[in-house]
Design a protein around this nucleic acid. Structure first.
Length: 272
DNA sequence: TAGGCCATCTGGTCCT
DNA sequence: AGGACCAGATGGCCTA
């Protein structure tokens, strides 16, 4: 199910498009909008504006392009300007996607050729919940530390063995891969309440998704099998000094308003 | 085939 | 004035 990766690869971003766009312009001067979408010239925005570069249209475009002096630009000038603007926009969106990929990489989610890439919306929602979970965990850890060591607070002694004999070689933010199934039921900030209530951290609900459509199943009712996301959240790396958010190590963090009902409904209905 | 996701184009607005 | 940002529109690809 690496359809997404194939899709991505089959859709090379920016660079090449310029050539296509330019060539399309060469073959059809009137098609100012006909870069990749051949039918784009039929769009409402084109009607009565960019379609046939008549003198009047050129002028109107010139005005829109900021030529308040109503200077009439030549076709080449207009094309050049449009190409430049389009190129900038593509670059901007490309940079945005790069940043989105960077965010995906540090998310507690399985990565690999066989795992479909998180959608943008899913990435953002997951990131949000992840941050909330980290915040809750941090607060809880602080609280526990103060409780355990009191005002004396020799924090140096805090941790490892506090979680029992289990080795916390689990994932840390940015390294979501390992997991251990030691502690079964833990509040999962990345799951909506409904999912959390029925799913353990072995997270069936999250799981199904990874194989097919991660972002949807992620917020969906429990399925079967443990997924990377769910398992990856069970523990934190010891070496990192990060807290273990599992139920054995701490009380479940307060309920986090994970996702709006609107989003939830959309994602759940989207799950298929 | 419908729906989801995405890339791209485009025009408007705001900022420097 | 030019660039960045944003949102709407459109069409392509993919999955169920």
């Amino acid at each position: 199910m690496d359809s997404d990766t194939s899709r991505v690869s089959s859709r090379p971003s920016s660079p090449e498009v310029d050539d296509i766009f330019i060539s399309s312009l060469k073959t059809s001067v009137r098609g100012f909008s006909g870069a990749v979408s051949s039918t784009q010239s039929d769009s409402p925005s084109d009607i009565g504006s960019l379609r046939g570069l008549s003198a009047t249209d050129e002028e109107s475009l010139a005005i829109r392009l900021g030529k308040k002096d109503r200077k009439v630009l030549s076709d080449n000038e207009l094309q050049t300007i449009r190409l430049k603007i389009n190129s900038r926009e593509r670059k901007r969106m490309h940079d945005l996607n790069v940043a989105m990929d960077g965010l995906r990489e540090v998310m507690p989610y399985a990565h690999g050729p066989s795992v479909r890439k998180l959608s943008k919306i899913a990435t953002l929602l997951l990131a949000r919940n992840y941050i909330l979970m980290l915040s809750n965990s941090l607060e809880e850890m602080k609280r526990l530390v103060s409780e355990i060591y009191g005002s004396g607070g020799h924090h140096a002694g805090f941790h490892p063995t506090a979680c029992g004999t289990i080795t916390h070689a689990g994932p840390v933010p940015g390294h979501p891969s390992t997991s251990h199934s030691a502690h079964p039921a833990v509040h999962h900030p990345l799951l909506p309440p409904a999912a959390v209530s029925t799913a353990s951290l072995s997270a069936p609900g999250i799981a199904a998704v990874t194989s097919v459509r991660p972002h949807h199943g992620l917020l969906k009712a429990p399925g079967t099998g443990a997924g990377p996301l769910g398992s990856s959240f069970q523990h934190w790396g010891v070496g990192t000094g990060m807290p273990c958010p599992c139920s054995m190590c701490q009380v479940p963090p307060p309920h986090v308003p994970a996702i709006s009902s609107v989003t939830m409904s959309r994602l759940s209905s989207d799950s298929k």
